[in-house]
């Protein structure tokens, strides 16, 4: 139960500073590519330049704070569980991308997420996930006439 502070002095702010600076550069570049100018007033690129500047300033701010002693305690993470959730979301995306349909996707999402939280009854979770998927699919497609992505399973209904 005791939070174990890991001393990762100054690394996160430095990394974030680099990311922020990269975003600033991308935004600046994107704005400089915009050719259409407004006939009157400000062009659409003005807001982009403003945001780019804001990011640059924040990057400098983070860089400065990277050289100060850090007061943020970062706790230990169970990266395996995070990975399982990532996998669960990939399962959904993959299923829809590759034409596996909504029911298969949400079944995978449900079962893999439950696994990430330490459940080990994978088969039961698959069945439960599939039941929810079928129910949601029928609710949306038949009653609300909102077409969810269809795969082989959905064609059965």
């Amino acid at each position: 139960m005791t939070p174990r502070p890991i001393h990762t002095p100054n690394r996160p702010p430095a990394v974030i500073a680099i990311v922020l600076f990269a975003i600033a550069v991308i935004t600046y570049w994107d704005a400089s590519q915009m050719t259409t100018r407004a006939a009157y007033g400000m062009s659409a690129s003005a807001a982009s330049y403003f945001v780019a500047l804001l990011f640059a300033v924040l990057a400098v701010g983070h860089l400065v704070s990277a050289f100060k002693p850090s007061n943020v305690e970062v706790e230990v993470a169970d990266w395996k569980a995070v990975g399982w959730i990532g996998l669960a979301l990939c399962g959904l995306i993959g299923s829809i991308w590759l034409g596996g349909g909504f029911i298969l996707g949400s079944t995978l999402l449900f079962a893999l997420t439950a696994h990430a939280f330490g459940r080990r009854a994978f088969l039961v979770d698959l069945c439960l996930g599939a039941a929810i998927g079928v129910f949601v699919f029928l609710l949306f497609n038949k009653l609300l006439t909102l077409a969810l992505p269809q795969g082989p399973l959905e064609k059965l209904f």
């Binding site: 979301l89 449900f110 997420t113 439950a114 939280f117 459940r119 979770d125 439960l128 998927g133």
Partner: peptide
């Protein structure tokens, strides 16, 4: 586990 699985779905 079911709560969060349900939330994600």
């Amino acid at each position: 586990p079911w709560l969060y699985a349900g939330i994600l779905v």
